[in-house]
Amino acid sequence: MLIEEAIEFYKEQVKSSFESLTEKESEIQKMEQEQKESISGIQEESHNLQSQITSQFAELHQILTDKEQRLLGDVREEEEKIIKSMEKNLQGIQENLKSIQEELSKLQEQTDHKNSLIFLKTYS
């Protein structure tokens, strides 16, 4: 009888330990599932944030590219205006220089005359 009681006693202890471990296993499996869901949620949030950042930077790049093109166009337009004005001034300067050179040439011809009377007539 003592052996059967001892067996029954140990069976109860094993059964109690089994139930306790089964509960712990269930709790740990629940914690495992929650942790996996948290990891999955964080990964999804991270991917969404990365996509949002990429999209926003693409928009900013486009805005900056558009602004760059407008500014480059403005600079080219201003360059053309300035160069046209400067070329017009250059043309005036060249005409003035040509006129002065022609006048110098005439004066040189007059001073080169050997005949003083012709020089005096031309000069007066």
Rank of each mutant, 00 (worst) to 15 (best):
K81Q: 11
I28D: 01
L49M: 08
F18V: 06
L90A: 10
M31I: 06
S116D: 10
Q50E: 13
Q33Y: 05
Q43A: 13
D66Y: 02
E59R: 09
K36I: 01
T65N: 03
I53Q: 01
D74F: 04
S20W: 12
L104Q: 09
S51V: 02
A6H: 07
S46D: 08
Q13C: 07
S26Q: 05
F18R: 14
Q35S: 06
Q91Y: 09
I7K: 08
K36Y: 00
T111V: 15
E44R: 04
I28E: 05
E37L: 06
S99A: 10
N96H: 05
N115C: 02
Q101I: 02
V14N: 01
L90T: 12
Y10T: 04
Q43H: 10
H113I: 15
L120S: 08
Q35H: 07
I100Q: 08
L60H: 09
E12C: 03
I82N: 07
S124A: 05
E102L: 13
Q56C: 04
E79N: 10
M86F: 08
Q62L: 11
Y10H: 11
S16N: 14
K106Q: 03
R70W: 07
E45Q: 13
T65K: 11
K11G: 00
E37A: 10
L2V: 04
E68R: 00
K84W: 03
S105E: 11
S26C: 00
G73L: 00
I83K: 13
D66A: 06
K15L: 05
E37G: 01
K121C: 11
F119T: 13
K84F: 05
Q13Y: 07
K121H: 09
N96G: 10
A58T: 10
T65M: 01
I100S: 12
K36S: 03
E32H: 08
L104A: 11
K88I: 03
E95I: 12
I53P: 01
E95L: 08
N115R: 14
V14L: 11
S55R: 15
T22W: 05
K15M: 04
L120Q: 06
K84C: 10
Q94M: 03
E12A: 14
F119G: 07
L107G: 01
K15W: 02
K15V: 04
F18W: 10
E87D: 12
